[in-house]
Write a protein that binds this DNA or RNA. Structure first.
Lengths: 222, 222
DNA sequence: ATTACTACACACCGAGTAA
DNA sequence: TTTACTCGGTGTGTAGTAA
């Protein structure tokens, strides 16, 4: 059996739920694969013999579940295709969260020369003293976790008068499709992973007329 | 030629750069595909005849570039796999666009019984008569193009009094993280691809206090 | 070195059919 | 209804070879 047929069959099976297990007749499968009932039956037999699926008869129909071997084969294809299609695209996340008032320390940190000079040099703007705090929605928290894994712009920590100041990872971002700024993933933050801190050259609260509870969209540019 | 072979061949070709164009001998391609030189040669001839690749001889070798038809086929395969593997992330895309006033025909179409009953049945709500028109930003237009390739919820066209009404593809969506509705990709629309039409059970302009030029974020859900 | 034709072999598909 | 066997036709791959 050709590898292309294995992949195509696993793909069609996965599409109807065979990763978690699916009850399907060979007739139905045949239609999905563009084959006769007889050929679909043989296809299942072959896939099972090769270890790509597990199969049994349940209620007269075939119950099919893709094995780990089959899952890994299909996933490798998926990841290859992702490389192909997402390679030279500005990978983009769009996070969304509600404004809230934080501890007010953002203003202190962003005005420290040890950080400020790095911001100017690496982000191209002098940050307005203070960060905009957003409490992210569920999907944005997932995206934030992916951002943690990515290489961003590193703002290095430093030591001053015996006190250490932690480092942060930044990504350039567009706030509300209007204002260029950056998001900060701060190493040692007092906030949880559901909080995102945003900096910009201007006072975001004022410029965008924001008040606590307002939703803000941040487009991360990579 | 079987579709599975077409996809597999395009995948291997894309992997070595055939989306942008690649110089490859039939011998090399044969090795990639697990075929003889002769079969690889025939494979290229067949793919070209079917319109999936463009091909010419350059410097003694075959220069191969995947056509739009081939690209779309492979991309659909990729997006399907993404749906399969990323289904636990239930956000597909986050589109963003500015409100504008359209021709006002949305109200007419959404109130037609031929469409309305399908909306209720397939989307689970009766649409407020009228659509919200959004002019998308650049990144959202790219996302919209990807949505065109995906399987969505199909609203079928129909004929009434000798006039035909086109079909549309829908995706459930969350507008401004607040209101459940759907986006419409209309088959025969008067607008360009930079326009997205949004429906919801309520008057979105009123509920979200929107006016022309306001930015709106639409989260497309699986 | 290339591509790609012709000829032939065989793997694969579907019809018929059994269970 | 199912699944899945046998068997015959054919699509697809390869070898040989030309250009």
């Amino acid at each position: 059996m050709k590898i292309s047929e294995v992949i195509y069959s696993l793909y069609k099976l996965a599409k109807v739920g065979a990763i978690d297990g699916v009850n399907i007749s060979t007739n139905e499968l045949g239609k999905l694969l563009g084959l006769s009932q007889q050929s679909a039956s043989r296809r299942l037999i072959d896939l099972e013999a090769l270890g790509y699926i597990y199969r049994e008869i349940r209620g007269g129909k075939s119950y099919v579940i893709i094995t780990e071997k089959g899952y890994n084969l299909l996933k490798k294809f998926y990841l290859d295709l992702r490389m192909i299609f997402e390679k030279d695209k500005n990978v983009l996340f769009r996070l969304r969260g509600r404004v809230f008032t934080g501890f007010g320390e953002g203003a202190y940190y962003t005005s420290l020369p040890g950080y400020k000079t790095q911001f100017v040099q690496k982000l191209g703007f002098e940050p307005y003293p203070g960060t905009l705090n957003l409490r992210l929605d569920l999907e944005s928290i997932k995206m934030r976790k992916e951002l943690e894994l990515l290489d961003g712009i590193i703002i290095h920590g430093f030591e001053h008068n015996g006190r250490t100041y932690g480092s942060a990872k930044c990504f350039k971002a567009l706030i509300e499709n209007k204002i260029k700024g950056a998001i900060l993933l701060i190493e040692r933050t007092h906030y949880g992973i559901d909080v995102l801190e945003v900096v910009a050259p201007v006072n975001l609260r004022k410029s965008l007329k924001l008040k606590d509870g307002d939703w803000v969209t941040v487009t991360v540019l990579i």
